[in-house]
Design a protein around this nucleic acid. Structure first.
Lengths: 181, 181
DNA sequence: GTTAACTGTCACATCAATGTGACAATAGCT
DNA sequence: AGCTATTGTCACATTGATGTGACAGTTAAC
């Protein structure tokens, strides 16, 4: 692929992610204009709107999987892995702000990939529970939802936090809550 | 208003809330069909799509304000008020599952109402912090985001929890987290 | 049971977005 | 500099949603 083509492709994906996160009904024309391209150029790379959505989704998923690899979710000590995961995933969430669950409802094989990645995190949390990091009287899926939302809030609600600060806050409040007790 | 008209209006609002929560781009025709009505009937009540959106939004907001009234956020002891608020707001979130922040971005005066209601909760959390229920080293807005998300998760991710159980879980994990420490 | 309110339906105009064809212009690679 | 990939643009067909007019049929209220 030629250099300018790669640049444009990247611009489309990032711009698309940003605009689609704000409004899932954003049109191809808007994305193209915002990326400084012609509508036709986007259509050449992505035959259909769905194809663009899927590509954006995969870009986010790849980044997330890379972060989980580097955090060594399955091997590293749970406390370390958790902290490292959050530190890595916050920038990913900022670069690809879109909500994958919403967008992939009608794309079955993309959804399979999403569930694979999701399963990695679930298995990690199970290990964290087994090793005593998490309370046993609360469902793992509850902790999982809490983790996801805290990451999301840190990434988008507190854009001034840098990743290490965000990780401290997320892990601390995930484990200890915001109560004084 | 005649009785059948009131019934239909109610059906449109509830059906609209449900479908729009799943997909914000749901068409009027789909909502009408799902509510067992003709498209034209919906248009008679709501001159434009925006008008329907606003009406659904206001229905949710009214319910939420009623819950906050009954929880006596400004007067009751903070621990009691918090529990009572969550217990009341979970059913509201289930009946009106839509995300008001997303939907009202382009409706300024609706947004003012939303911010008023939001402010009530913020003021309550500030009081909770002042009275020592919440840690002082964490921003109020962080606790606020956490509360909102926990309520959301309990309401939609754990539909089998009844409101009192949901309130116990939400308040417990909000204050103490999911860590064993 | 009559009246007034409300609804369903056929039909229509409008608008915006998707997706395509062809060709000239431009940018990167060697 | 010259070849080739890539892009911009004019134009067009198609589709789906919004919103409206008129009128007959139905339902609730008194």
């Amino acid at each position: 692929m030629r250099a300018d083509a790669a640049r444009n492709l990247d611009a489309v994906l990032r711009t698309g992610a940003r605009l689609l996160a704000e409004d899932p009904a954003t049109t191809i024309a808007t994305i193209a204009a915002e990326a400084g391209l012609d509508r036709r150029t986007v259509y050449r790379r992505f035959p259909t709107r769905e194809a663009l959505l899927t590509a954006v989704f995969r870009a986010k998923l790849d980044s997330a999987n890379r972060v989980m690899d580097e955090a060594r979710l399955a091997e590293a000590p749970v406390a370390v892995a958790l902290h490292r995961y959050v530190e890595g995933i916050v920038p990913v969430s900022r670069e690809w702000p879109l909500d994958v669950r919403r967008m992939m409802r009608e794309d079955p094989d993309a959804n399979v990939l999403r569930e694979e990645a999701s399963g990695r995190l679930d298995r990690f949390l199970r290990r964290a529970a087994d090793e005593g990091l998490l309370r046993a009287d609360v469902p793992i899926s509850w902790a999982r939802a809490m983790l996801d939302h805290l990451v999301d809030t840190a990434a988008h609600g507190f854009p001034l936090l840098d990743p290490p600060q965000a990780a401290d806050l997320v892990v601390d409040t995930l484990l200890n809550g915001v109560g004084r007790g």
